[in-house]
Simulated assay, not measured.
Amino acid sequence: MSIESVNPEDEEAGAVVRAVARQLKLWREAAGLTQSEFGAAIGYGEELVSSVERGRRIPRPEYLDAADKVLGANGKIAAMKQDLAEVRYPKKVRDVRRLEIEAVQICSYNNSIVDGLLQTEAYARAVFGSRRPPYTEEGLERQLAARLARQEILTGARAKPLFSFVLCEATLRRSIGGRMVMRAQLERLLEVAQLPNVDLQVLPLDSEENSGLSGPFRLLKLKDGSTVGLSEAPLISRVLCDPKETTVLDVRYGIIRAQALTPRESVTFIEQLRGET
Rank of each mutant, 00 (worst) to 15 (best):
M1W: 06
M1D: 09
E4G: 00
E11Y: 06
E12N: 11
A13R: 01
V17N: 01
R18W: 03
V20R: 00
A21V: 05
A21C: 05
Q23V: 06
L24Y: 00
W27Y: 15
A31H: 06
A31F: 01
Q35R: 07
Q35A: 14
S36G: 08
E37R: 10
G39V: 00
A40P: 00
A40C: 00
Y44L: 10
Y44S: 02
V52K: 01
V52R: 01
R54M: 01
R54T: 11
R57W: 04
I58K: 03
I58G: 02
P59Y: 05
P61F: 05
E62W: 08
L71D: 02
L71W: 07
N74Q: 12
K76A: 15
A78N: 08
A79V: 03
K81M: 08
V87P: 05
V87A: 02
R88D: 00
K91T: 13
V96W: 11
R98P: 12
R98T: 11
L99V: 07
E102N: 13
N111C: 13
S112M: 13
A122H: 07
A126I: 01
A126T: 14
A126Y: 04
G129R: 15
R131A: 15
P134Q: 04
Y135G: 12
E137A: 12
E138N: 04
G139I: 14
L140T: 05
E141C: 02
L144V: 14
A145I: 09
A146K: 05
L148S: 03
T155M: 11
G156M: 06
R158D: 11
A159E: 08
K160I: 15
K160H: 10
F163M: 11
F165C: 05
L167D: 05
L167P: 00
T171E: 01
L172K: 04
M180D: 14
V181R: 04
V181L: 11
R183V: 03
A184H: 03
Q185T: 02
L186M: 07
E187P: 07
E187Q: 04
L189R: 02
L190G: 03
V198S: 05
D199P: 15
D199K: 09
L200W: 00
Q201M: 08
V202E: 03
E208Y: 03
S211Q: 12
G215M: 05
L219V: 02
L220Q: 06
L222M: 08
G225M: 12
S226K: 15
T227C: 07
V228G: 02
L230N: 09
E232S: 07
P234S: 03
L235R: 13
S237N: 15
V239D: 01
V239A: 09
P243Q: 05
K244S: 11
E245Y: 13
E245T: 14
T246S: 08
D250S: 07
G254I: 08
I256S: 08
R257Q: 15
Q259Y: 09
E265H: 10
E265C: 08
I270R: 01
Q272P: 11
T277G: 00
